[in-house]
Write a protein that binds this DNA or RNA. Structure first.
Lengths: 208, 208
DNA sequence: AGTTGTGAACCGATTCACAGCG
DNA sequence: CGCTGTGAATCGGTTCACAACT
C-alpha cells in the first residue's frame, strides 16, 4: 500500500456501493463523479480522490462504468466473499443484532453466538448458540475473524482479550466503556447514548 | 456562541463525563487534565481546549474540581434535565432499543413508540405504543424533540419529514439510506453494516 | 511549583483548479 | 470537448509550548 488511506474513505466507499447498486437497478451503465456526487451527497473531487487511492477505475471524458466500479470497490473493501461473524452477549441488543437484516446485505452472517447463560435463548436459523466458556475454541475452529460485542459493561475487557487470543481481528463494540485494545486488533465503538447526547447539544444550541 | 465547536468535542465531553463519574465514585475531588487524559485516552491539551470552548472551569496550579466540572459539562451538553424520546418502528431493532439501558444512563427515556402495526407488540413500563398514524399528534402534544428511527428503508424519508413537521429537532437514524434532512433538523446516522465493512477492510489490509 | 488557557505549529482531510487523456 | 486524476490551496482539528495565573 502506497499511502495511508483515511478511514472515512472506507465508510464512503460503502456509501458509493449503495448508490451504484441503486443506479445499476435503474439501468445506468456509466456514471460521472458529478452524478455520483449528487446521489451520495459527496463532493465529486472527494469521490475521485477516494477512488484514486486504489487505482484508476475511470475513463477520462466518460466517467466510471457502473458494474466495473462496483466490482473494483468490492475488491478494495475486501467484501467480495461473505464473512462469518461471531456475536458475544445475547441480551436484548444482542438478540436484535442477530436478527438485523442490514448485516446480510453487506455480506456478513452471524454464525456463532455466545452467552454466559444460553438456556432459554434462541437464535435464528444458520446461527449456533454456545456457552461463553467455549468462545476461544469455537472461534478458533471456525476461523472467525470478526466479532460483535454486546455484553455487560463489567465483562467487555475480558471478552475483548479472549477474542484477541482466539485470533479475532476486528470487533464492533456496543458497550460504552473505554477498552484497552489488544495489539493487532481493530475495535470500532458504537455508542448510542453519546449519539443522543450530541443531538441534545445541538438542540440546546438552537434554544439560544 | 463565539466560535464553532467541533462536533467531536461533544462526543468527548460525554466521555469525560463518564470518566468523572468513575473518579467521583473513587473519591477523587480534584483532577488535572493530565489525569483525565490518562483515564480517557485523550491528549490533555485536547481536553483543556475542549473545555475552554465553554468557559474557564479549572483553577491554574490545581486542576478541575470533579463535581464542579461534572455540573459544568452537563450544563454545556444540555443534559441537565431528562429528555423524552420517541421511537418509530418497533421491529427487532426497535424493540431492543426500547429496552436498551444505555439511554437511561444518559438521562433519556423512550416514552412513546410508534408502529404501523401495533397489535401484538408490547413495550416496557413507562412507554406507550401508538399507531404511526398518530405520530404528529402525539409528538406535538408531548413536546418531544428527539426521535429514534428504526423503520423499514422504504419509509424512512416519509417518517423523517413527518417528524420534522411534528417539530422534532434531532433524529438518531438506524436505517442505512441517504435521507434528505429537513431544515432545522439534525440527523445522526448509525450504520452498523458500514461499520463491519470498515473492520473488514482493515482485516484485508493485514493479509497483505 | 504546578496546572490551566491559548496562540502558533502541525497534521490530515477536503476542496479547488487544471493538466492529462480518451 | 468532457471527465478523470492529482498537485496545490484550503480548512478544521490536534498537539505543542509557553505565558498567565493561583
Amino acid at each position: 500500500m502506497r499511502v495511508k488511506i483515511p478511514e472515512v474513505t472506507i465508510g464512503r466507499l460503502s456509501l458509493y456501493l449503495r448508490c451504484l447498486n441503486e443506479m445499476e437497478a435503474e439501468g445506468m451503465t456509466v456514471v460521472s463523479s458529478a452524478e455520483l456526487g449528487k446521489r451520495s451527497g459527496i463532493n465529486p473531487a472527494q469521490i475521485r480522490k477516494d477512488l484514486a487511492y486504489f487505482g484508476e477505475f475511470g475513463t477520462r471524458g466518460v466517467g466510471y462504468y457502473v458494474s466495473e466500479l462496483k466490482k473494483n470497490i468490492k475488491e478494495v473493501m475486501g467484501v467480495n466473499h461473505p464473512y462469518e461473524v461471531a456475536l458475544v452477549g445475547v441480551g436484548n441488543l444482542g438478540n436484535a443484532l442477530l436478527r438485523y437484516k442490514g448485516f446480510q446485505r453487506h455480506g456478513f452472517r452471524i454464525t456463532a453466538a455466545f452467552d454466559r447463560d444460553p438456556t432459554d435463548k434462541d437464535v435464528p436459523e444458520g446461527c449456533t448458540l454456545y456457552h461463553s466458556d467455549d468462545l476461544e475454541k469455537v472461534i478458533r475452529e471456525r476461523g472467525i475473524k470478526i466479532a460483535i460485542v454486546s455484553v455487560h459493561q463489567s465483562s467487555v475487557q475480558e471478552v475483548i482479550d479472549r477474542l484477541a487470543k482466539a485470533n479475532v481481528k476486528g470487533v464492533l463494540n456496543f458497550v460504552p466503556t473505554r477498552v484497552n485494545v489488544p495489539e493487532g486488533m481493530t475495535v470500532r465503538d458504537v455508542d448510542m447514548g453519546t449519539e443522543l447526547d450530541i443531538l441534545t447539544f445541538y438542540l440546546s444550541l438552537q434554544e439560544k
